[in-house]
């Protein structure tokens, strides 16, 4: 039943995409939040070979731990994703304030 993990990732990505394509600007923010969860889950699962111990070394050797590298990567990704999300959120506020709309389909000042 490993099959379930890919489905989880698919649902996170697909659901995020669905939200991104909606009109409300807040939905886009939430959608990107879901997608970044999906990417993080995918990234950490890339080190998943099976169950393992928390990679905190005790006295007895270096066997049986899970891969610490993806964890480090995900940590970086989480923080960057948080920064980007915060930025996007404030930008959404600016969009609403300056362009006087929170509907993405009305933002069309530049075309052609």
């Amino acid at each position: 039943m490993k099959l379930l993990l890919p489905v989880v990732i698919g649902v996170l990505f697909g659901g995020g995409t669905y939200l991104m394509l909606k009109k409300n600007i807040l939905k886009l923010v939430l959608g990107l939040g879901l997608i970044s969860h999906g990417a993080n889950v995918l990234l950490i699962s890339s080190g998943w070979i099976g169950a393992g111990a928390v990679p905190i070394l005790g006295q007895d050797g270096t066997e049986g731990f899970v891969d610490p590298v993806p964890q480090a990567l995900v940590l970086t990704a989480i923080v960057i994703g948080f920064a980007a999300l915060a930025f996007l959120l404030v930008l959404a506020i600016r969009v609403y304030r300056d362009l006087k709309t929170a509907d993405i389909s009305e933002i069309r000042g530049q075309r052609g």
């Binding site: 997608i35 999906g38 995918l42 930025f87 930008l91």
Partner: peptide
């Protein structure tokens, strides 16, 4: 105004591809 609009478009696309980058990096690792 133009900058806000352009910025919003760019960042929406950019964040999606950042997630893709992570997915690709995870896959390659």
């Amino acid at each position: 105004k133009k900058q806000i609009e352009a910025g919003f478009k760019l960042i929406s696309m950019g964040l999606f591809t950042s997630a893709l980058f992570l997915a690709a990096a995870g896959g390659i690792y």
